Computed example of a mutant assay.
Amino acid sequence: MANPWESDNCDEIRAYYSAYYIPQAAALWCGVPVEVLKQILSQATETSRNIYAHPKISCLEPRCRAIHDAIDNNKLACGRDGKSPVFDSEDHVAPERRTVSRQDLKEWIVKEFPSNKPEFLFDEVERKTHSAINAESFRALQVDRDALQRQLQSAKESIKMMELQKYEVAAKLKQYEERLKCLDNAINPRSEKTYLNIIGALLEVVTGTFKGETFTSETQLRDFIEEKFDDLRGVRSRTTARIFAAAKRALNDDMA
């Protein structure tokens, strides 16, 4: 298994100190891939000294001119055949022998053409970043964005949970409203009279006139009340069966 340092071809480092002849730099700026660079330039025509035009690459000639013009006006340093850049404008370098370093060319393009970032000079982050924002600031913004996205996801989950709780509460509220409505209907004057009559009859059976009577079932008790208190409202066996059942449910609910 190869060690990491044995497989690293240092492309980024090599590119940092690379130098290009003017037609090469112009063609790469136009987006010509490195592997076909020689072929493309061999098909180009020299329109003036070291300025080339290509029938299918319209930007080649103007970019050759722009680079030469920047060198002539001391806006872009050039070297001679790839050697160290010459900064003294009086030190003449023949146009054919002019070369520009990758870094100098990159800085010049950033300054003069901030919206134009060719792939051979700028990485993906730099191409997607506004000229006023450097790569470090862009990455910091990405970190902030990721944190905000996580917060947004958490907020969405919280909202979903609250909505579920809201539905549960609404269902409970509806249930309570229905129970309250039943209670309102149950405690009207007529119903109240029925309840009081049944309670009164039970008291008579348990502690009053009929004390000592025994019953083997609830049915016998209801029938007895209906027989002895037939003149009272609500003491019919069917009514007392319903009310007894409701009373048992209420008692069980409270004892649960």
Rank of each mutant, 00 (worst) to 15 (best):
M1K: 09
A2I: 08
N3K: 13
S7C: 08
C10W: 07
E12F: 05
Y17N: 11
Y21N: 08
A26D: 03
A26Q: 02
A26H: 00
W29K: 03
G31D: 07
V32Y: 04
V34A: 07
E35I: 05
V36N: 08
K38P: 06
I40N: 05
L41T: 10
S42Q: 13
A44S: 15
R49Q: 13
I51E: 07
K56C: 03
I57N: 08
S58H: 13
E61W: 05
E61K: 14
E61M: 10
R63H: 11
A66L: 12
H68G: 06
A70I: 02
I71S: 02
I71W: 00
D72G: 05
L76K: 00
C78E: 00
G82P: 03
K83Q: 10
K83I: 00
K83N: 10
K83C: 03
S84T: 15
S84L: 07
P85C: 06
P85T: 06
F87P: 03
F87E: 14
A94N: 11
R97W: 10
R98F: 05
S101H: 06
Q103E: 14
L105I: 00
W108N: 02
I109G: 01
I109R: 00
V110F: 01
F113H: 04
P114I: 04
P114L: 04
S115H: 12
N116D: 15
D123S: 07
D123T: 05
E124S: 15
T129C: 13
H130M: 09
N134T: 07
R139Y: 14
R139A: 09
A140Y: 08
L141V: 09
V143K: 14
D144V: 11
D146C: 07
Q151T: 11
L152S: 13
Q153S: 12
S158W: 03
I159F: 07
K166H: 08
V169Y: 14
V169Q: 15
V169N: 15
A170F: 14
A171K: 15
K172G: 10
K174E: 14
Q175Y: 11
Q175A: 11
E178P: 01
R179W: 12
K181A: 13
K181Y: 09
D184S: 12
I187F: 15
I187G: 00
P189W: 02
P189I: 01
E192N: 13
E192R: 11
T194G: 01
Y195H: 14
N197Q: 02
I198G: 07
I199W: 06
G200K: 00
G200M: 01
A201P: 01
V206T: 12
V206E: 12
T207R: 11
G208K: 06
F210T: 04
E213D: 10
S217G: 09
S217R: 03
E218N: 15
Q220A: 13
L221S: 04
R222N: 03
D223E: 14
D223N: 11
F224A: 00
F224I: 01
I225A: 01
I225D: 02
F229I: 00
D230H: 07
R233A: 07
R236Y: 04
R238K: 15
T240V: 11
A241E: 11
A245N: 09
A245T: 10
A247R: 06
K248F: 03
R249H: 05
N252Q: 13
D254A: 09
D254K: 14
M255C: 05
M255Y: 07
A256F: 07
A256R: 08
